[in-house]
């Protein structure tokens, strides 16, 4: 008989980590199918390295999207391009 505590105990090492991390990449990049996403969610419920791997990849991706400085193109560059285009 498996106790409730044992049932929710997540494994602390993943025997398929290389494959799982490839799946994590597809998921965070929005390139995985619904079936792949559902399958990985089930896996995350039982595997701590996969859960942590997913959280870290998602965090890094969000960090790249949100915290890298977005530079505005100089208006002088736009003017210069338009001026050159008008002479072509």
């Amino acid at each position: 008989m498996v106790s409730e505590a044992e049932k929710i105990q997540k494994k602390t090492s993943c025997e398929h980590q290389a494959e799982c991390m490839k799946m994590v990449q597809l998921i965070v990049d929005g390139q995985a199918s619904d079936e792949q996403i559902n399958q990985f969610k089930l896996n995350m419920d039982t595997c701590l390295p996969c859960e942590k791997g997913y959280e870290l990849e998602k965090c890094i991706k969000e960090t790249m999207q949100l915290r890298l400085e977005k530079k505005c193109v100089p208006s002088s560059l736009i003017d210069c391009i338009k001026q050159k285009i008008s002479t072509l």
């Binding site: 991390m21 490839k22 959280e55 965090c59 960090t63 915290r67 890298l68």
Partner: peptide, 23 residues
């Protein structure tokens, strides 16, 4: 690239880095 490599890095550490460090 599927070689199983791991880097010990915490989500919290990434969240603490500022934009310049990310860049």
């Amino acid at each position: 690239a599927e070689t199983n490599q791991t880097v010990d890095l915490r989500v919290e550490s990434v969240q603490d880095l500022i934009g310049d460090e990310i860049a």
